[in-house]
């Protein structure tokens, strides 16, 4: 399909640009990160690790930029992102891999729940826009989406976790119950994820409700909705198949952005709830000046944003024939 091929080429170029920038930016920064690291480690770094780090950063005095770039690409192709300093001597790829699942599980699920629920509520509220439900929902949604996230998270943690003790204060699972595919373990994981997920949904739900509602209302005044009514289609069909399907299209772009930022977006959540995800890792990496880890995480984030956008583009092509067919 022509549309898919064109989008794919676009994203491959975008991905290449992002890995190239990821290569260039550290080299444009003043100073030599490897020297900084040696000083931070008080010379206790092993010659092997130092060499690996130097290779990762390309701080060879003798190699020119092109050679460094080539080595960087080769290393990347092998999934070699270097060695983390914070978690020395564990590889960056391993560190990221261990945290990724927690972030995807928590922030990913919360984002999808929030989008689906918010979109559905937005459709419903727009459909009943002359009723009290609409007049109530709009200000409430505006109010909750204006909450400063960290403030809400801290209050929730303090009240529900510390004062009332209904929820755990930190972590993704109990130390006595390592994660496994057993019922008590899954229950324990959900118990730990409940508060952080709740705070994410509370803060982001309003935005989805409002944007879907605001897309729906002009869509409900379209002539094809009036025709569908005159034609005696069932209310549900008009609401979902005619109005919502058209109104959903602009919202998908927002959803793509949100999906992409799942990887990075959990920083505050994971810090407040001490959740072992990528956001927490990013915070640690930047406070410890862990350049290899930072670089790996940034690469990961840009990859996630591009992948999510590509997936939504494919979906968009399916849902809106104009996007797929009119693009020559």
């Amino acid at each position: 399909m022509r549309y898919v091929r064109r989008r794919l080429i676009f994203y491959l170029i975008a991905f290449w640009t992002s890995i190239t920038l990821n290569f260039l930016i550290p080299r444009l920064m003043p100073g030599n990160p490897a020297e900084n690291l040696m000083m931070r480690m008080h010379g206790k770094i092993s010659p092997y690790a130092l060499k690996a780090l130097e290779a990762e950063f390309g701080v060879f005095q003798h190699a020119n930029l092109a050679v460094q770039y080539w080595r960087y690409l080769i290393a990347l192709a092998h999934g070699n992102l270097g060695v983390s300093i914070t978690y020395f001597p564990i590889r960056v790829s391993t560190v990221i891999g261990q945290s990724l699942i927690w972030t995807l599980g928590l922030i990913g699920t919360a984002t999808i729940i929030s989008f689906v629920l918010g979109t559905w509520l937005g459709i419903w509220v727009a459909w009943h826009r002359h009723t009290a439900w609409d007049r109530l929902t709009v200000p409430v949604a505006m109010f909750t989406s204006a909450f400063p996230y960290f403030w809400l998270a801290l209050i929730v943690l303090y009240v529900l976790g510390f004062v009332l003790g209904w929820f755990p204060l930190s972590g993704a699972y109990s130390n006595t119950l390592p994660p496994a595919l057993t019922l008590p373990s899954i229950a324990d994981l959900l118990y730990h994820a409940a508060l952080p997920a709740l705070t994410i949904v509370v803060v982001s739900l309003g935005g989805w409700i409002l944007s879907m509602r605001n897309n729906m209302i002009p869509s409900l005044n379209e002539d094809y909705i009036q025709l569908a009514r005159a034609a005696g289609l069932k209310e549900r069909t008009i609401m979902y198949q005619y109005a919502a399907r058209n109104a959903l299209l602009p919202n998908l772009t927002g959803f793509a952005m949100a999906l992409g930022f799942i990887v990075a977006g959990g920083i505050l959540t994971e810090i407040v709830f001490s959740y072992p995800g990528l956001g927490f890792l990013l915070y640690q990496a930047s406070s410890n000046q862990d350049y290899p880890l930072l670089q790996g995480l940034l690469l990961m984030i840009s990859f996630a944003v591009l992948l999510a956008n590509f997936a939504v583009d494919l979906l968009y092509g399916r849902l809106d024939p104009r996007a797929a067919r009119s693009e020559v």
Binding site: A230, A231, G232, K234, D320, R322
Partner: peptide
């Protein structure tokens, strides 16, 4: 009324441009 629509009385709208569902 819904059942009777289109079976007994139908409409050719003012602007067919916008009266068909675009997707």
């Amino acid at each position: 009324m819904r059942r009777l629509r289109w079976m007994k009385i139908s409409l050719v709208p003012q602007s067919a441009m916008n009266a068909l569902n675009p997707i």
